[in-house]
């Protein structure tokens, strides 16, 4: 691409005067160059924006529109009903229970997950035998499909013939109906989420840890700091940005939790997330509203509410980042 921007147009009239037979080709070429400079950058990014428009922007705009209507496959016509869906949602007990579940499972899974990942990364940051193997091993769950994880954990936490209940009975504890009560259900789902994502976060921590200069630890060791002390006063502070990153990624994933709780109950009523909504997340309620109750408009309103929820939580995270960086 030519960068000869400012001179090209101003030279135009002069050449026109001097050269008696106007050199049409060079003029055409100049215009082409001008067009090239002005338009081609947009052309280069166009494919992305076209795809984005079709698969990103259009669904978003359509969701916002549909949320203002009563669209349903059962209705012949689509009626504009204004904010009715949002008013209904505000008073919808089932929606708020789903929000509670989502946040509950999020906290219950993310906190131990990140702590465990940190300890795991710290352990793998040392010199030991079979290091490559262990580092590979913690990455394996990431490439397992969520559906398979859900299926296997469904069996592990089965009421009658499940592995966990069998172990509990061996040590004389009564078996637990994991799907019947809120906390056991949240715990089992969190176990599923953690199994899958702890290794992922551990890898990220490990990468960050390896960029910490060795001599800092050596200096600390000479000063007599124990390994534990080194971990808390050197590793953790230097990992701060990485920790914040993983917290945000986990937030986004956690608030959209869907496959794990859905697979946890494999009856035809799985979308209900338990008999009394013990583990129905917001995304499950959204899909239930759309696919089972056939209220596309109301489902659109739930989707927008979820969006607002994620924005709020993200803002809280943003505030957190600013505070921590100003601490330094």
């Amino acid at each position: 691409m030519s960068l000869d921007l400012s001179t090209a147009p101003s030279r135009g009239p002069r050449t026109h005067h001097r050269a008696a037979p106007p050199r049409a080709t060079s003029r055409w070429r100049r215009q082409l160059t001008r067009f090239d400079i002005k338009a081609s950058p947009y052309l280069y990014v166009l494919p992305f924006f076209l795809l984005f428009a079709v698969f990103g922007l259009y669904p978003m705009v359509y969701t916002a529109w549909i949320a203002l209507t009563d669209r349903s496959p059962l209705n012949m016509t689509i009626n504009f009903i204004g904010a009715d869906n949002f008013v209904e949602l505000w008073h919808d007990h089932q929606f708020w229970t789903a929000v509670q579940n989502t946040l509950g499972i999020f906290v219950l899974s993310t906190v131990p997950q990140l702590l465990l990942a940190l300890l795991l990364a710290n352990a793998l940051n040392r010199k030991m035998r079979g290091l490559g193997f262990f580092r590979m091993a913690i990455a394996i769950p990431i490439i397992t499909s969520t559906a398979v994880v859900g299926l296997v954990f469904g069996f592990v936490f089965a009421r009658d013939f499940g592995l966990v209940n069998w172990l509990l009975e061996q040590v004389g504890i009564n078996k637990i109906d994991w799907r019947a009560n809120r906390l056991p259900a949240w715990g089992a789902i969190s176990a599923m989420v953690d199994w899958r994502w702890t290794g992922y976060n551990a890898l990220i921590y490990l990468a960050a840890m390896q960029s910490i200069p060795r001599d800092m630890y050596e200096a600390a060791a000479i000063d007599g700091a124990s390994r534990r002390r080194q971990f808390w006063t050197i590793t953790i502070p230097l990992l701060r940005p990485t920790i914040i990153f993983t917290v945000i990624i986990s937030t986004i994933g956690g608030l959209q939790l869907f496959a794990e709780p859905l697979m946890f109950d494999n009856s035809p009523r799985a979308l209900s997330g338990g008999t009394q909504q013990q583990f129905q997340t917001v995304t499950m309620y959204l899909v239930q509203t759309m696919n089972e109750r056939l209220r596309y408009g109301y489902a659109g309103a739930i989707a927008l509410a979820l969006f607002v929820l994620i924005v709020i939580i993200s803002l809280i995270n943003y505030a957190l980042i600013r505070r921590i960086s100003s601490d330094k």
């Binding site: 009658d160 013939f161 035809p268 009523r269």
Partner: peptide, 17 residues
Amino acid sequence: NLASFSDEWNAGFKNGT
């Protein structure tokens, strides 16, 4: 107390519960 058409229900058939 089996959720009909679930895996546990299927297991109930196999185990004759």
